[in-house]
Amino acid sequence: MKTVKAFAPATVANVSCGFDILGFAIEGMGDIVQLNEKESPGLEVSSISGDDGKLPLDAAKNTCAVAIQAMVEDLGINPGISIQLEKGLPLGSGMGSSAASAVAALIAANEFLSSPYEKKDLLPFAIAAEKIACGAGHADNVAPSLLGGFVLIRDYHPLDVIKLNVPQDLYCTLLHPHFELKTADSRSVLREAIPLKHATIQSGNVAGLIAGLYEEDYELISRSLRDVIAEPYRAVLIPGFYEVREAVKGAGALGMGISGSGPTLFCLSKGKEKAIQIAKAAEEVYQSIGLGVDVYFSAINTDGGYVLTE
């Protein structure tokens, strides 16, 4: 019986000023999906580990199965595939957990079916899975998880996704405090209307961040990591946000923001040593307020998801 296994990485979405249009991938952390051939046609989710029993085995509700189903329907086939998901990412963390599952499933399925698609062409199927997981088909997690690096979603109709330059010495520190923040709650505090002044500021920061990435201008990247649309309303939902921001700035962070809808925070820095110093500074703040935190740092993952070989 045929077996294929694939990995897809964690991601940071929004990246401060890039609400719903920017994201980047992280090294090391992610989900693994194994596909096994079965005799009867159709998809089944046979096992999920690392989720504390929270994710559905129902193929109509599971992001892995929904993503593969969209692919096989596009191909006009109905293969027999059993899906095993190994969660390496915490649920509801703001690190693209559902996106990593869908992307790993699609990369495995494409290999399983003898690679009928180019990697970039898997993105619409991943977006279909995100609709099931999050209620909206945003690509700022699935696109970087699939393609790697920094990714800009310029438009959805039609889908227009651009990989951006990544400075070689750019690092990210992730801070995952030990409490749950539901995406629905993070979305509920956002404002329907945006003042023209804020729209102008945000546009300038997005343009500045992209220019900073291409110019490898760390000062410009730092000045541009400012969100005036979502962060002011979401920050109050995250304990210690402002204290942590001050601490990591003092430790050399280019900037700090909310990863996706939170509660994970991300910090960008120049070099690994700064990333380590930032992690230590943040841990001290969380310790002082009595809140546990998981800390992780890495370079930017420029490869995205990939097939695992034995």
Rank of each mutant, 00 (worst) to 15 (best):
S269F: 04
L35R: 05
N14F: 00
N165V: 11
K272H: 14
F112V: 02
K5N: 06
F125N: 02
S145H: 04
G208Q: 11
V12H: 00
V166Q: 09
M1H: 14
A102L: 00
G76V: 00
C134W: 03
A67K: 01
L91V: 15
K5L: 03
V248Q: 02
N36E: 10
R226W: 07
A143N: 09
P232H: 10
M1N: 12
L91F: 04
A99C: 07
A100T: 11
S46T: 13
F125R: 07
G149H: 13
I278G: 05
K131A: 03
Q34G: 05
P239L: 06
S40V: 12
N141T: 06
G271I: 04
G250D: 14
K54I: 14
P158G: 13
H157I: 11
S115I: 10
A230R: 04
M1Y: 09
E284F: 03
G290T: 08
L22A: 11
H198M: 12
A199P: 09
Y242H: 14
Y242E: 15
V103Q: 04
E180V: 15
Q277D: 14
A67T: 14
I107K: 10
S47M: 01
L308K: 14
V33T: 10
L91S: 15
G304Y: 09
S269E: 08
F150K: 05
G50Y: 00
I153A: 05
A67Y: 03
G18C: 09
A25V: 08
T309V: 14
Y117E: 06
K249A: 05
L268Y: 11
G135C: 08
I276H: 12
V285H: 11
P167H: 09
G88E: 02
P124I: 01
F297C: 12
K54R: 13
E283S: 13
E246L: 12
F150N: 07
S47I: 03
L43I: 10
E219R: 09
V244I: 14
L237H: 09
K270I: 02
G212T: 10
V15D: 03
L106C: 02
E310Y: 11
E243V: 05
G240N: 13
P232C: 06
D140W: 01
A230F: 04
I221P: 03
S288E: 09
A136I: 09
I21R: 05
G28M: 06
A199R: 10
H157K: 14
L22K: 07
G149L: 04
D217E: 05
Y156Q: 10
E243S: 15
L85F: 00
D294Q: 13
F241A: 11
S222E: 08
S16N: 15
G255K: 03
L159E: 07
G292N: 12
N36G: 01
G240I: 01
N301G: 09
G290L: 08
Y214K: 13
S82D: 04
A99V: 06
A59P: 03
